[in-house]
């Protein structure tokens, strides 16, 4: 089925762009009239995925982070956060809560947050080629003026 609307964004993996990524996705999602809680969940999940690109995928380098978002008529939202960074050798291990390679000030909760704040999280990664994180959430569609 064709999405009702879609958008693409690309930006350098500078940490200042974490806020930009949240704002861009929030602006796209606004048309679906999400609840405050839904919007907070989506912004948090996107923030985690983009931070992973910046902290891990492009650890000692600057690369490009790609975001695509699609919205379907039934309220299904799909967001893909993609990088062409170092990739993840062991995705299962990377997704374990508290596992981190980011040093002591990283909580190791990025994927756990994405999983608990979204309905579905899929990670595809190839070492040396990059990672794509697909986040999906079904928004409760409220009747207009309801």
């Amino acid at each position: 089925m064709k999405p009702e609307n879609e958008m693409r964004a690309a930006f350098p993996s500078a940490s200042a762009n974490e806020g930009l990524a949240r704002a861009v996705v929030a602006a796209f999602v606004a048309q679906a009239d999400p609840t405050v809680a839904e919007l907070a969940d989506i912004k948090t999940a996107v923030s985690e995925a983009v931070t992973n690109c910046i902290v891990h995928a492009y650890r000692d380098t600057l690369g490009t982070v790609y975001i695509t978002a699609k919205l379907w008529g039934d309220g299904t939202l799909q967001i893909k956060v993609r990088d062409k960074g170092c990739g993840i050798a062991d995705v299962k291990r990377a997704m374990e809560p508290l596992f981190t390679t980011g040093g002591e000030e990283r909580a190791g909760l990025g994927f756990a947050v994405m999983q608990s704040f979204m309905d579905r999280v899929q990670v595809r990664s190839k070492p040396g080629a990059g990672t794509t994180v697909t986040l999906q959430k079904k928004l409760a569609r409220r009747p207009p003026n309801g």
């Binding site: 923030s47 931070t51 002591e104 000030e105 909580a107 909760l109 990025g110 947050v113």
Partner: peptide, 16 residues
């Protein structure tokens, strides 16, 4: 207004 898991790391770090 907003906090992700980096805020959690900040709190845990200050706690330690």
């Amino acid at each position: 207004q907003f906090m992700d898991s980096s805020g959690v790391g900040l709190i845990m770090g200050r706690y330690q």
